[in-house]
Design a protein around this nucleic acid. Sequence first.
RNA 1: GGCCACGUGGCGGAGUGGUUACGUAGCGGACUGCAAAUCCGCGUACCCGAGUUCGAUUCUCGGCGUGGCCUCCA
Length: 479
Amino acid sequence: MELRLYNTLTKEKEVFQPLDPARVRMYVCGPTVYDFAHIGNARPVIVFDVLYRLLRHLYGEGKVKYVRNITDVDDKINARAAEEYPKLLLNEAIRLVTEKTEKQFHDDVDALGCLRPDVEPRATEHINEMRDLIERLVKAGFAYVGEEHVLFEVGKMADYGKLARRSLDEMEAGARVEVAPYKRNPMDFVLWKPSKPNEPGWPSPAGIKTPGRPGWHIECSAMSWKHLGETFDIHGGGIDLVFPHHENEIAQSRCAFHTPIMAKTWMHNGFLQVEGEKMSKSLGNFVTIRELLATKKFGDREWTGDVIRLSMLKTHYRQPLDWTVAALNESYSVINGWRRHLTSGGDYTMAFIEQNREQYETFLPAQDVVSSLLDDLNFSQAISALHKLARIDSVEAKQALFGSLQFLGILTFEEMASEQSFEELPISKEMLKARIAARNLARENKDWKKSDEIRDELKAMGVVIKDNKDGTTSWEIAR
RNA sequence: GGCCACGUGGCGGAGUGGUUACGUAGCGGACUGCAAAUCCGCGUACCCGAGUUCGAUUCUCGGCGUGGCCUCCA
C-alpha cells in the first residue's frame, strides 16, 4: 500500500515518495511562544503528529526526522515581556517569557498524546543561518537593502505566488496596506529589519551598520535548511499560513539555493471555529488547551487529552472543524465505550493490563486503520474501522483495537489503565466497596427498596452501579 | 473588492456517476427485581436552480449561505 497525500502545491493527492526513504524529512511551523496555546494551535500539532506516527510506521522509527520550530523572536513576545516583567532588562524578560511558554506548550501537547518532534529549533539560535541566507539572496540579486531593511524582491522570482495560486497583479489589486517607502514593489517582504534601541538585536547582514532582527519568514527557511537540508519532503502548517508565510519561505529557500522546490509536499490543515463562530478574544470564545484540560470553562467540566484528541481527529484534517461542547461529549462517550469494551471480561481487566504492560505496548495497529490513513490521513475512516473492531468480542480484535488506539495516540496506556480518580468524589474507595457490599446483601434479601436507595445515594455522589450478568457488581465514575 | 475552500440524516462526519459508511442522540425490543452496561431493530440524508447523462448527492455552470487569505492570527 502506498501513502497518498494532498499537496497544496499541485492541488492534487499524490503518491508520497520520499527523496530519501532512509531519511524522511518533515517540517511543521510551530508556536510563537508568548502565551498559552489555543485549541486552534492544537490542530496542526495533532494532525502532523498522526502523520509522523504513520511515517514512522511505514519507514521505521529511526528513519523519520520531524522538525517543529519554536518562534522566540516576535513583537508579541516583546510586548508580553515588557508587560510581565517591567523591571527587568527586556532581553532577560523575553527569556523568561519564552522559556515559561515553551514549558506550558510542551505540557499541553504532551497531554494531547503528541510525540515530541526530533528537533525543536529556536529561532534565536539560528540567527547566523538567517544572515547567511540573506547574504546569499542579496548577492544573487533577489534581495535589496532599503533604509536599513533587507527586502525580498518578489518580481525577481518567476514562480512567486505558485503555492497560493495568486499572481502579483491580483495581489497588488487586492492590497489594502500602506506601502512602506523603501519597497520597490508593494509585495516585497522583509527579510531583516533594524531594531529599535530597546529591542533585541543582532549584527545585521548586507553591510547594514545598525543591529537588526529577522523578518517573520526567514526563520523557517533557516531552520529547515539547518536541520533538514536545502530540500526536504513535507512542510506543514495551518491553511492560513499558505500566504504569505509559506509562499515567502519558498521564495527565500529556492532563490537562496537555486532549487526547483523547497519541500516536495505542502500540507495544510483546515481552520477551526468555536461553536460556529470564529475564535477571537473579542467574541469571548477564545479557548486554550490548558483551559480544556484543567478548568471547567468550556462545557462546565474538565476534559482529558484523549477526548480532545479524538474530537480533533473526527474531522478530516483539511476540512473546517467546529469545536463544540457537543462534539467533546460525543468523544467522551466513544472513548468510554472503547475503554469499557477493552477492560471487560477475562484477561482484559485493568489489573491484568497493568501487569502485562510491556506485551500490550507491542500490539500493532489494524491494517484497516493504517490503510485508511494512507489515503491522505482519512481519520474518519480510521475511526470507523476502530468502531468495527470494537464490536468484535475476541482477543485478536481487542489486541488490534488496543494497538490501533495506541498507534493513533488516542487511548494512551496511562489513560487506559489508570485507576479512576477518587479525589473529586465525596466517598473513599473503601467506603464505596462497603456500600456495594451492603447493597448486595439487601439484594440477596430481595430488599429492593434499600438496594435502590443505596444505588441512588451512590449515583448522587457520581458513581454508577452496574450489576453484571455473572453476579458481580461493578462501578464507574459518572461524568 | 480580488483569490480560495466548504454546505450530507436531530447532531457529528466519510464516501460514491446507479448498489443503505461510521458514530452519537432518540425511539422500540431482548436481558435485568428495577436499572446500568451489552445485544438486536428503526429513521431512509446529501443547500437551491439549470445543464451533461439512460441515471447526479457525486461532473459542469449559475445562485444562496458559511468560513479562510489578501493586515507577521495555526
